[in-house]
Design a protein around this nucleic acid. Sequence first.
DNA 1: CCGCCTCAAATTGGATACAGTATCCAAATG
DNA 2: CATTTGGATACTGTATCCAATTTGAGGCGG
Lengths: 228, 228
Amino acid sequence: MARDDAPERTTHADKVYALLFGQLMNGTFDPGAALNIPTLSRKFEVSQTPIREALARLEHTGLVHREALRGYFVAPLFSEVELDKLMEARLVLEPALALEAGRRVTPEFLAKLLVPIDDLLRLSESQVVRSFREYWSADEDFHSLIAEQSANPFLEGAYRSLGGQVQRFRLFVKLGSADARFAAAEHRQIYDAFVARAPEAAADLMRHHIESARLRALSDRKTILANE
Amino acid sequence: MARDDAPERTTHADKVYALLFGQLMNGTFDPGAALNIPTLSRKFEVSQTPIREALARLEHTGLVHREALRGYFVAPLFSEVELDKLMEARLVLEPALALEAGRRVTPEFLAKLLVPIDDLLRLSESQVVRSFREYWSADEDFHSLIAEQSANPFLEGAYRSLGGQVQRFRLFVKLGSADARFAAAEHRQIYDAFVARAPEAAADLMRHHIESARLRALSDRKTILANE
DNA sequence: CCGCCTCAAATTGGATACAGTATCCAAATG
DNA sequence: CATTTGGATACTGTATCCAATTTGAGGCGG
């Protein structure tokens, strides 16, 4: 009994999944907070069944975790150690993704890749204070497009299995616009390597980019006390 | 430490998950077969809700996939191309896991690792024809223990995101006992590198092991026509 | 070949059973 | 008299079931 009887191609469970995903990304919920099903059911005005399914599917993103017979909870924030281990994992995966993507460069890929690069550059040069989400969205798009272009679903899947974690990182680290400028420049160098059809160079530059990001993250790290 | 002294507390959803997982691993279902919820509900004698939850959780293993408004299906078998890409992904992840594990070698780790190594060796020398599952279980345990010892939950998670895929591979490739002998020997070499506290050597040997396995898989490859 | 009809299956809504937790009251203790 | 403690009770939330609704697919007649 949907109140908007438009021809929906999406199920309630899909909509709840998307809504919760967005809210978790935006930090709407406190880390560790309980996600109890009857409350969410009332909040989203659907019954408990689609909520339950959406939560089950969110579990593998790392944004939500489940304790048997206790329910679902928002994943806790990262410790410094975890942050470091995440970056180490990215250091393993992303150069390999860049290498494979570099072997499959197409004009369309280059065109699509330019969008998040320019976005990040523009944001970093803007005097206006922007939300973290904008920076991260541009950064994430860049890395995500490369993962896609690797043409290896398993490698891409392994990268995406870190995806939710990467976003939780977003809530823990304050990225200054100076950092964003560095990142934008590094993205551009990787792009240039793609243009030059130099996969190994792209992989090396990606390794360097992530190592730099890791250092920036560890030095600039601050817990989020104020809101965005 | 919660100990279940009086009532053993497992939910129906957990039991259904474990049962389905085992049956999917054993190839009880045909690839691509529909897994419809009412039928499973009758079969396992529980209602549809725990079935639904178990399937949602199984989706992340790659053993099962879902099409919106059409239901759940057993994942299809691998093509040769996919098999190759899976091995490529393992080639990225597993040397890195071996490297990290090699930096954290403990006597307990070595002791636990010896078990699947010996199992595989014993199986490969046995004259009796054994089921694929036994070979694969020993092989999987070996690699899984190393992933665990890496002490990087993200890297380990990325490896495990391939886990179900690795098992689907099992249904596609016929591993002869000759191959198992090679694998057992290679496992032993990696073990020796761990004993010698030589992480880089362990990583190199792991790379070599997976490359060899890849070649063996591609040359020996046969679709499964007969059962185990 | 096309549209209608029928059926099976997914999806959803709500009700129930059950367990764990918090709360409150009163008796016992210092 | 204040404080603590035992236990009963209310409440919250998960896990489960079942019934109702909606959608998709295939058969049948035009």
